[in-house]
Design a protein around this nucleic acid. Sequence first.
DNA 1: CAGCATCCCACATGATACTG
DNA 2: CAGTATCATGTGGGATGCTG
Lengths: 140, 140
Amino acid sequence: MDARPVSMRIKLESYRASKDGERGLANCPVRTVIDTLGGRWATLLLSALAEKPYRFGELRRLVPDISQRMLTQTLADLQRDGYVHREVFPTKPPSVEYSLTDLGRSMFEALAHVLGWAERNHQAVRTARAAYDRAAEGIE
Amino acid sequence: MDARPVSMRIKLESYRASKDGERGLANCPVRTVIDTLGGRWATLLLSALAEKPYRFGELRRLVPDISQRMLTQTLADLQRDGYVHREVFPTKPPSVEYSLTDLGRSMFEALAHVLGWAERNHQAVRTARAAYDRAAEGIE
DNA sequence: CAGCATCCCACATGATACTG
DNA sequence: CAGTATCATGTGGGATGCTG
């Protein structure tokens, strides 16, 4: 019996094409998901929407650093992948509300493990980086 | 009392600087972690190393698509963040073994939730994308 | 065997201006 | 309010050749 915890038994095969004949990483299950989440703003917007639905302008104020272009585009990417629902209210001027779908909530539940880990351990990572950089400094 | 599951209560503040005075996303706890993991090869190499330690050449054969440049660089990034331990054996010619550190194993345990979700749900994501693209097609 | 140095380009992201 | 369009740029990543 495999003594490793379940979480350690992710199969490397999951990174390859799901069907023979498909080449490269285009069809890789993991990359299908990570490519969208790896962007600079996706996890941030997902965290906001996990809290509650928000409108475009509210998100903009919530994340002042994001440009309007990237806010629009990231939301579109998340909607395209089925994580986010976009609802237009034909008021005047119009308002648009964004919310997580069931798929999005399901995915965020998994992602939250990483976000939680990051909250708890980012200092350890920073410390490791500083040590690595200090060691590299001595060599040059 | 907050009825949301623990995983939903990731605080948006975690994305901001950990200390006042630090501006932008440079000091964001989540970005500190995600910036490294978001790359094209990091999760793939971590999955391999979670299985067992590997040498440079073994990793290269395991992941034929990766260029030598990116294999070296990604491993260095992972080592710098403290996820990976690099051990040089002064044989001739030299061999170098890479393995997960305790920090790396801890982090991968969280990451595995996302990888597992991706394995189980990538088809749903692909389906959502196809539907979105089909709808967009009709408009143009 | 396990890298490093160099060149190069596509693409992700930002800045700015305009619109229904 | 919630976008779109356009231009500019930094950098992630590939290709290739060299080295201890």
